[in-house]
Write a protein that binds this DNA or RNA. Sequence first.
DNA 1: GGAGTATTTAACTTGACGGTTAATTAACCC
DNA 2: GGGTTAATTAACCGTCAAGTTAAATACTCC
Lengths: 128, 128
Amino acid sequence: MQDTLTLTFSALADPTRRAILAQLARGEATVKNLAKPFAISAPAITKHLKVLENARLISRSRDAQFRPCRIEPAALREIATWVDDYRQIWEQRFDQLDAYLKLQMQSKSRTQKKSETKKKGSKNGGEK
Amino acid sequence: MQDTLTLTFSALADPTRRAILAQLARGEATVKNLAKPFAISAPAITKHLKVLENARLISRSRDAQFRPCRIEPAALREIATWVDDYRQIWEQRFDQLDAYLKLQMQSKSRTQKKSETKKKGSKNGGEK
DNA sequence: GGAGTATTTAACTTGACGGTTAATTAACCC
DNA sequence: GGGTTAATTAACCGTCAAGTTAAATACTCC
């Protein structure tokens, strides 16, 4: 079995599954009901639901022959935390880099020619 | 090609790639350097980097024969937004459901036996 | 130019994934 | 019980992702 982060990200990586979640965000639904807008077979939906359930993004109950799905916020909360933590670190790192680059440019403008050969500058300079 | 959300989530769905990002969060690194802690071959790393680059989670430059990778915050910002939007909707929906269930329980405790056989209606009952 | 290092490309294997159809199970209604 | 509907399981197929090794490319240094 896999770690929960992998489980959740993989589950969210499929557009059909995200669409299912979007659907479920408007309320509980049955398999048949979920299959309707997607033009794929019921077994396919069942599989998607299993993935989502396994990632604890949804949970299911029973109501007669139906098995309604509903959204389960906890998993998404976890993901939100992860993403946000990293985002913070990255932005910070990015700012540092930014500052560093500015410094670099300053000193480069002062010692321009020396770096010319040592530096492969032509390719390096033309970032994108 | 795929939509950016799918691209990003798939990229993040792999534990090796997340580990690479964690590594990069501490600063730029080369392929060789990134491969070290992972016990997988350099070409494998190259592939992972391509995936990450394709998802715009990292970008790369050239420095002599090295090709250092650095983190690119924009993509993660996008994901953060998506996750957070959904999370909000879900929590809200969850609260509604919660309230609804509480109501159900109250009314059920008043009309217990009648719903025993016939309660199929509740499936649609809670909608919109 | 030639040796050496870093990285990528090519070709291939393997396994998982998303889909299908057909058959099965579970519940309802009459 | 028999028929109907909802959903799942089973068996299968094609594609793609992740890994490998071996060869090619890109650059540095002498």
